[in-house]
């Protein structure tokens, strides 16, 4: 007996909370992926990253409404179209943001913080004006509803779906990073920006593409987010702090570190939430992260090479 639960119960609780944690993990990974590649590439912390996610969520919402009204027969497929639209719209806005705002501020990291924070406020107000202040939710297609039962444990199909999606996107980003020309250039710029220019890499162009891609991934995270939370103009704010935590904890330049760190944080949060209140869970998670960061200030994963 522990906390008044039998060990059998405790096992089920752990698995079920663990699963709930996995959906949170998915959103964290997608958000952190975008934030981390942008931060790694150009040292810019995108304070509006949560709003790019919510933009993706609204796109998904619009898309589901459009399908319901005009193409009810194809409703089962709307989510895939929505993801593509969310990626393109958030990515395009990201490209525009880089061109209009960020590229003028590269020499001034603190100003990029302020500027993107300002952008996040503008975007929130734009959402409020366009979509209204009330929360909106999307209708799930029927094949995504319901759950599968494994013994005494129920898992929701949409949760499984979101996780599969996350795996695929992470895999694609990893492939791009380690197999594509773009990835080669990103890794070079991250290692040594000046020298990258001197070997012929157009670092500014890579910055723009990277910022766009990072925002696009946030948009897809927004699509996933519609399945587990309701969309409102300021919902992105709730996730941005946790995502920072994930990035810093993982070591900003390691994909694997980001994933491991998202896993640790989402799991400890969701497991602890069962036993204590939400805010206690958050405090404990923070304490764990701080403790681990004191032991490993460079984050969980760092590549070792000689200097």
């Amino acid at each position: 007996m522990l906390f008044g639960y039998s060990f059998g119960d405790l096992g089920s609780i752990l698995v079920m909370q663990g699963f709930a944690g996995l959906i949170l993990f998915s959103v964290f990974v997608l958000m952190a992926l975008g934030l981390a590649i942008i931060f790694g590439q150009m040292g810019v912390i995108n304070m509006a990253h949560g709003e790019f996610m919510i933009l993706g969520a609204y796109m998904t919402f619009l898309c589901s409404n459009l399908f319901q009204t005009y193409l009810p027969g194809l409703f089962g497929l709307y989510f895939f179209v929505a993801m593509a639209i969310a990626f393109v719209v958030a990515g395009a806005l990201g490209l525009a943001t880089e061109w209009l705002l960020i590229r003028h501020l590269y020499a001034r990291p603190l100003d990029t913080l302020l500027a993107t924070w300002g952008l996040s406020l503008i975007m929130q107000q734009a959402f409020r004006s366009i979509f209204g202040a009330r929360e909106v939710g999307v209708e799930l297609p029927s094949w995504m509803m319901g759950s599968l039962t494994f013994g005494s444990i129920d898992v929701q199909i949409n949760g499984l779906f979101v996780m599969g999606l996350t795996l695929i996107i992470t895999g694609v980003v990893a492939l791009l990073m380690f197999r594509s020309r773009w990835g080669l250039q990103v890794r070079a710029v991250v290692t040594n920006r000046t020298m990258s220019g001197a070997v012929g890499i157009d670092t500014r162009r890579i910055d723009r593409l990277t910022f766009g891609l990072g925002c696009g991934i946030a948009g897809v995270a927004g699509s996933a987010f519609t399945m587990i939370g309701s969309t409102s103009p300021s919902a992105g704010q709730l996730y941005i702090v946790d995502t920072f935590l994930v990035v810093v904890f993982g070591g900003a330049q390691s994909l694997l570190g980001t994933i491991a760190s998202a896993f640790t944080i989402s799991q400890s949060q969701s497991t602890l939430e069962f036993f204590t209140s939400g805010s206690n869970a958050k405090v404990t998670t923070l304490l764990i992260v701080i403790g681990l960061l004191m032991l490993r200030p460079q984050g969980l994963f760092v590549l070792k090479v000689r200097k």
Partner: peptide, 26 residues
Amino acid sequence: LAYVPQGRQIFGTMTVRENIETGLVV
């Protein structure tokens, strides 16, 4: 123009092949 800096400044975390490929980009 191509440049070989003092102190070499190769990309330490990337493989030898990838280092050469960065020059190929242009």
